[in-house]
Amino acid sequence: MEKLLHWSIANAQGDKEAIEKAGQPDPKLLQQLFGGGGPDDPTLMKEAIAVVRNPEAEMESKLIAMDNFEMLIENLDNANNIENLKLWTPLLETLSDPDEELRASVLSVIGTAAQNNLPTQNSFLKQEKGLSRLIKIAGCDSECLNVRCKALYALSNLVRNHPELADEFVKLNGLDIIAPILTDLNVKSKLKTRALSLLTAYLTAVQISEGLVSTLRKDNVLPSAISSLKLEDDIAILDRVLNFLSHLISAGVKFTEQETVELRNNIGRIKIFKDRLNEEDYSTVERAI
């Protein structure tokens, strides 16, 4: 910085000897301080995806490019520009890449871009087989944990408060992926937590009705959620199940006699965790049974 100051003063005075003595400042420093016509965000976004889709690029370079891309699309304007720049197609094509870390990175980008962002949610809805790809990945037993978690994260942010995407999610049998995750004793808690977050996000976009509850029963979502209260000791999972049930109760849903009996037994079992659970959700469920 001191060298830059001497150079600036010498240039202002036109002192050639002083300019020569000060030497040329670091061009990068000049660009940081004053700008320099560097690439704009859309260009940087396109360049990042070009690296990701380059078959000759090293995987480390691709992952760095995806990290940079995600930082850029944390800006809503950049996220909404994904469609204008025609970048949805190469992003979705990268979900077929054999490298699981790269696939996870793409899913993280989708989730981040869609978070509380209606224009990006709308643009993703237009992508042919985009939602179905994410559902397939999230429900695939042979897929690695991190990729499945990121797929559930992306799905949650896509359907949250978006009735059309939520409707499409159901049409594509998206609810079918939740029960198997909740009932599998070998599944990691992180994946179950993500599945329950998706379920809660879905409820924000739909009207809770008897028809919806019938669907939740048919797809084994409601029974598996109730069973989770018997099978789980993980506080995060129990909290999310109680929150899901509380949403239903607050909307006027009545449980069947069998569901009520099971809920009563399961609430009794998790009473030891009461002080660590959300008090309002716990009380709502307890009062309903």
Results as ranks from 00 to 15, higher is better:
M1P: 12
M1W: 04
L5Q: 13
H6R: 11
W7F: 15
Q13S: 07
Q13Y: 03
A18K: 15
I19R: 12
D26F: 10
P27K: 01
P27V: 02
K28L: 14
L30E: 12
L30H: 03
G35D: 07
G36R: 02
D40Y: 03
E56N: 08
A57T: 12
E58A: 13
S61R: 10
S61M: 12
L63I: 10
L63M: 12
I64A: 09
I64G: 00
I64F: 01
I64W: 00
I73Y: 02
N75R: 08
N75I: 04
L76T: 09
L76N: 05
N78D: 09
N78W: 07
A79Q: 02
N80E: 14
E83G: 05
T89M: 11
E93R: 12
T94F: 06
D97P: 11
P98C: 07
P98S: 10
P98R: 08
P98K: 11
E101V: 00
E101F: 11
E101S: 07
V106L: 03
L107M: 11
S108C: 06
S108G: 13
S108V: 01
I110R: 06
G111I: 07
Q115T: 07
N117M: 09
P119Y: 01
T120I: 03
T120D: 04
Q121N: 03
N122T: 02
L125Q: 06
L125I: 05
Q127T: 01
E128C: 02
K129D: 10
G130D: 10
R133Y: 06
I135S: 00
I137T: 13
G139A: 06
G139N: 06
S142F: 11
N146S: 08
C149P: 00
K150S: 14
K150H: 13
A151M: 05
Y153A: 02
L158H: 06
L158D: 05
V159Q: 03
H162W: 01
A166T: 03
E168M: 13
V170W: 07
V170M: 10
L175R: 08
D176E: 14
D176G: 10
I181Y: 00
T183G: 03
N186M: 09
V187E: 12
K188D: 15
L191C: 04
L196Q: 06
L198W: 06
L199M: 11
V206M: 03
I208V: 14
T215S: 14
L216P: 07
D219P: 00
D219A: 09
N220H: 15
N220M: 14
V221T: 15
V221E: 11
P223Y: 09
P223F: 12
S224Y: 04
I226M: 04
S228M: 11
S228F: 03
K230V: 00
K230N: 12
K230Y: 08
K230G: 03
L231M: 11
E232V: 02
D233C: 05
D233G: 09
A236S: 10
D239N: 15
D239S: 12
R240W: 02
L242P: 15
F244Y: 14
L248A: 07
I249T: 06
I249N: 01
A251S: 14
F255S: 04
T256K: 04
T256D: 09
E257R: 09
N265G: 11
K271M: 07
I272W: 05
I272Q: 10
K274T: 00
D281Y: 06
S283Y: 04
T284K: 06
V285Y: 05
E286R: 04
A288L: 02
